[in-house]
Design a binder for these strands. Sequence first.
DNA 1: CACGAAACAGAAAAGGGTTTCGGTCTTTTC
DNA 2: GAAAAGACCGAAACCCTTTTCTGTTTCGTG
Lengths: 343, 343
Amino acid sequence: MAGKDHVGGRKAVTLTEVARLAGVSVATASKALNGRSQVAARTRARVLQAAEQLSFVPNTLAQGLLVGRTGTVGLLTSDLQGRFVIPILMGAEDAFGAGRVNVFLCDARGDTIREQHQLKALLSRRVDGLIVVGSRTDSRPSVGHDLPVPVVYVYAPSDDPEDLSLVPDNVAAGRLAVEHLISCGRSRIAHVTGDPSYAAAQDRVTGALAALDAAGLELVGEVMYSEWSERWGRDATAVLLERYPDIDAVLCGSDQIARGALDTARDQGRKVPGDIAVIGFDNWDEMVTNSRPELTSIDPNLQLLGRSAAQRVFAALDGEEMGKGVHTQAPRLVIRGSTVARR
Amino acid sequence: MAGKDHVGGRKAVTLTEVARLAGVSVATASKALNGRSQVAARTRARVLQAAEQLSFVPNTLAQGLLVGRTGTVGLLTSDLQGRFVIPILMGAEDAFGAGRVNVFLCDARGDTIREQHQLKALLSRRVDGLIVVGSRTDSRPSVGHDLPVPVVYVYAPSDDPEDLSLVPDNVAAGRLAVEHLISCGRSRIAHVTGDPSYAAAQDRVTGALAALDAAGLELVGEVMYSEWSERWGRDATAVLLERYPDIDAVLCGSDQIARGALDTARDQGRKVPGDIAVIGFDNWDEMVTNSRPELTSIDPNLQLLGRSAAQRVFAALDGEEMGKGVHTQAPRLVIRGSTVARR
DNA sequence: CACGAAACAGAAAAGGGTTTCGGTCTTTTC
DNA sequence: GAAAAGACCGAAACCCTTTTCTGTTTCGTG
């Protein structure tokens, strides 16, 4: 008997066994366990005790077969590795966890074939909904328009305007950053950012330039594009300080670049934030709290984004209209020592 | 018809509908789709075409109901946030993805009640196996001994020796680090590490001391414990350099601490690796490649750990003996510029 | 005591797929 | 020409749970 299902374990208990032990029919057992009213108190107690004794757990799959809902959602990501996916995932898992929904996690590793495969697997599991999470804010191909379940795209929007996409508002983020720098009394602001092929980079530039324009200011020099690394932050800032020694703020396209900027400023004896203010994007905890000084950053509120996605799927399940188009999530400014001196 | 299931979608297609379209019984349709031999070639073609036309996807749940297997595995983590869980998760998801197993992801947020809840949910979903991932290498309470499915603990071992646990070998890691420093000609080695309540910290110390002992050396000063942060790395290294100016290597308990050490060394004009070698643990990509110089580190091979866990569950499903006790995963030394000068 | 009304228990169907078994139709062989 | 063999298809059972509907018992009341 042992070792039949697996070593040391027993097969899962079914309602039939509970009913037999309690000496009732499965129908009665079901009603007793689900609090239906057509069961005598004594009978109910007997059933409950039997269920307890066998540590019975109802088979959600069989339940789902009846109801037509599985209470599961597929979360299809293209890049788990990436920092941005995790907070989104947590937000979604959190929102779902509250109701009794479980999440299937699939990582396509950025491979389209693989993604199709995973998609099919999820549909065959009859997920009630689908959340597609990308690793860049650039638009991505839709997974299809006439799927039997609602789909929400997060972080990376779908290229099909009929789909619903939830993305961080990087234009607002750029604007917010510059407004903060200006409010700190800065006026000679330079911008070092990452890979120009990223929509995130372009959007932040757009927002930053708009905010500068609104204040009657201009960016110092050209936007410096390259890669999202500390190294580039260091190198670019070195060039910047040589070419424009009088800048009083560096707007950095990511927290990593910002850390590089802080390092170079420090190396060259420029005080932060006294001589130069530095601000980053992403509010990546480890980067932001370990630098000297701690880094002011724009938080894209990714966890909220994940939660919203989950709520949208919930709503769609309840028959609500799904909505479409790209919706943005407002960012949040987190002020630390790199722009405002600590008393 | 539209908007019945959800906006813009259609209900999932069942085998019955395919059979009707093909003009055969469900039995025949099933056999045709599954390559059974008792179907005429022409009939089979008709069924396949019908399935194609309706884009039929078989209901894995219904299949699982028959077979008694769902082809799903629960992955129960206590802390998704943590850096260590993700690589493990990826390794497992990867290994499972190859076979047709899908992963339910649950995050208990470090809450025991919540964990029990999730566990019950997973069992009610009839997962075929369970992987429990912790965020520290300290042992954790077993989720129970007589569950109807095989369970593997990863990173954080179970406190029940009857359970199977897979953990990184931190003793070996400590040893490996010191051996590397010695092989680089270092002999005056100090150790700055994190929170002493972490088994990881203690184990690495054990390994390090053993390696020193084997080489006839002694640690310079006491082990310096505090927290796993860059700040502590900086402060501790400053103290160290003042108290023992002649040290030629700092063994750091994490990559973060090591980055702090690098910063302080740089501030004080000590050349790395010329004057002082620095080595960290975890091989955390962003930390390790962005420092000046790049950081030598011990990689705990977490992805392999996740993969092993998946394979163990697979094996158990195939009726193999589960095994028990704590098994360790050998670490890997990754040499970079902080211990060996780049030509 | 008899009748109606509750109260309670159980049989059966449903949900989607697979499999077994039995039946029909065609083909081969003597 | 008849019997045996094979090829092919379909009815029905099964997995597990819920729900509806029917049947039985008990109780209260006239």
